[in-house]
């Protein structure tokens, strides 16, 4: 698993698409926030500040889905197209090791966009705070890490599933990205009748979840069990589907 993860990670960190999205994300999201956090006078790290940065808008979610689409699109589709599965599975590699390796590499790349910069911003805020409540700030730092981890994990299984459905990485990338917008549009349509439907929009779901993690005020209409079910389903169901699909393809893995 470690060997597969390392190889995929190295390749991804040389891929132009990944580098462009990471650069744009840093420029438009993280760099501004970091500069603002350091320059603006603050007594401590506020949960609301981090929520506004990470969860309240859709920008980070859009960058996250874009990155997930680019990172995961070829991970399985390329092996399907090139029939390289046999190279892995003629060796003592199990399907779960193969998927864990590919998934771990994707999570590492995703964390460069979704987890590490917010944690860096939070640490910079704590380092430059004027107040003494370091314990409170550390608590927000921990919440930041949790929110970043959720965002890191959220789109990867779905992207891997889309990659296992096709031999063309472009289809997988477009499929992953479009699913995000289809769910967003469906949520918007149904929200006209009941705003609780917003939980089926991945961006809104992440926003509500971030709000809960940071302990800030969230809309009253959010149905928390439904949100939890949707998020768990969005992560677990694709993971199970892709595992079973590969398992069926590779007997004895």
């Amino acid at each position: 698993m470690y060997v597969i993860a390392r190889s995929v990670f190295r390749h991804k960190m040389k891929a132009i698409g990944v580098l462009v999205i990471l650069a744009l994300g840093f420029l438009f999201l993280h760099a501004f926030q970091l500069i603002f956090t350091v320059i603006a006078p603050h007594e401590g790290l506020e949960a609301q500040t981090m929520y506004d940065y990470m969860g309240s808008g859709n920008t980070l979610s859009i960058f996250a889905i874009l990155l997930a689409a680019v990172v995961t699109s070829d991970l399985i589709s390329e092996d399907l197209a090139g029939r390289s599965f046999v190279l892995y599975f003629s060796r003592a590699v199990k399907v779960r090791d193969y998927l864990a390796g590919k998934g771990a590499a994707s999570l590492l790349v995703m964390s460069i966009m979704c987890l590490l910069p917010p944690v860096a911003v939070a640490i910079a805020a704590i380092a430059t705070q004027s107040g003494d409540d370091y314990a409170g700030s550390a608590g927000v730092l921990a919440r930041t890490a949790v929110a970043g981890a959720v965002m890191t994990v959220f789109f990867v299984p779905y992207g891997l599933m889309m990659s296992s459905f096709t031999k063309r990485k472009s289809y997988a990338a477009v499929g992953t990205f479009m699913s995000f917008f289809v769910l967003l549009i469906v949520a918007e349509i149904f929200a006209e009748f009941d705003p609780a439907w917003r939980v089926i929009s991945p961006a809104d779901a992440l926003s509500f979840a971030s709000g809960w993690i940071f302990g800030v005020e969230t809309p009253e209409y959010v149905d928390w069990p439904a949100l939890a079910a949707f998020m768990a389903g969005f992560v677990c169901a694709p993971a199970v589907v892709v595992y079973l699909k590969l398992k069926r393809q590779v007997v004895g893995g």
Binding site: D74, L87, A92
Partner: peptide, 16 residues
């Protein structure tokens, strides 16, 4: 499989 080498008939190399 630990002690086996397999050269498949079809194209299977990772092109990238």
């Amino acid at each position: 499989r630990d002690d086996i080498g397999y050269m498949p008939e079809h194209d299977c190399l990772i092109p990238s």
